[in-house]
């Protein structure tokens, strides 16, 4: 697969996976764009990766962590607030779902992102996150149960 095809078929899924993990569309867009740029710069090597979408998501999350660590160390003289402007509401998932995702521990969110949005199997998810396959299964079950509990009143009315 050449990079153009990979980008066209993967960009939205990767953005959704990262957005579900970091909880911000703007941050997700920025870090996913950076991850794809790095992928393009290394495509001859990366094209042989067994799960390049997982590589994109993992790289985007690493970029996010590096970015956050850098800003956390900085000490503005007045408190620095987050000036991120939300995109139009009609492009965002249900706020109740985003709120429910934010209640999950980071590892559960990562498992949700890889299993649901990238449709990775348990083994590949485990390799990507560096955890045991059984742990992936457990995280997915807990995350699913937690989401169901958060969303139950909504789904019950529909």
């Amino acid at each position: 697969m050449d990079f153009e095809d990979f980008y066209a078929t993967s960009k939205d899924a990767c953005l959704r996976a990262v957005m579900a993990t970091v909880g911000s569309r703007q941050l997700a867009e920025e870090t996913v764009a950076e991850a794809f740029a790095r992928a393009w710069a290394s495509w001859p090597k990366l094209s042989a990766h067994p799960a390049p979408r997982a590589w994109i998501v993992r790289t985007a999350l690493n970029v996010h962590v590096s970015w956050w660590r850098r800003w956390r160390r900085e000490v503005p003289a007045v408190e620095w607030t987050d000036p991120i402007q939300p995109p139009p509401d009609d492009d965002l998932p249900d706020p109740r779902l985003m709120a429910a995702l934010r209640t999950l521990p980071p590892r559960q969110r990562q498992v949700i992102a890889l299993r649901i949005f990238l449709d990775l199997d348990t083994e590949t998810t485990a390799r990507t996150l560096g955890i045991a396959p059984g742990t992936v299964t457990a995280h997915l079950a807990r995350a699913t149960a937690a989401l169901r509990a958060c969303l139950a009143p909504t789904t019950g009315q529909e």
Partner: peptide, 9 residues
């Protein structure tokens, strides 16, 4: 719910 989220780059 995430279907409308698309990367615009």
């Amino acid at each position: 719910e995430f279907q409308r989220v698309r990367l615009t780059d």
